[in-house]
């Protein structure tokens, strides 16, 4: 019984990682829940992974506020190189 739910630790954690982005399917989530009901190690991994997701989320908010621009110096250098390229 329940054989269809049986997965390895590696498979469980693959599902766990996918579900951090909300992209694991219903049957995958069932398998994961079944696995961590019995496997303490993967239960710990799952808990810590959620914690990490929260940390990454904050990091992401920080990074996305930032737009990257090229320095004027780099632009001038690039203009010089373009001129050479166009005349060659």
């Amino acid at each position: 019984m329940f054989k269809f739910l049986k997965i390895t630790c590696q498979e469980a954690n693959e599902i766990c990682n996918k579900s951090q982005y909300g992209e694991a399917s219903f049957s995958e989530k069932m398998k994961l829940e079944f696995h961590i009901a019995f496997c303490k190690i993967c239960a710990l991994y799952t808990k810590q992974n959620k914690n990490l997701t929260g940390i990454f989320k904050r990091k992401s908010l920080d990074c996305k506020e930032h737009t990257h621009c090229m320095s004027n110096n780099d632009k001038e250098l690039l203009k010089e190189k373009m001129k050479q390229e166009m005349s060659s």
Binding site: N13, N17, K18, Q20, N49, L52
Partner: peptide
């Protein structure tokens, strides 16, 4: 992509 994400996160977890 998911294999890469899984490996990256497992390694990151361990590093952290």
């Amino acid at each position: 992509l998911w294999v890469i994400i899984h490996r990256a996160r497992t390694q990151l977890r361990s590093c952290m």
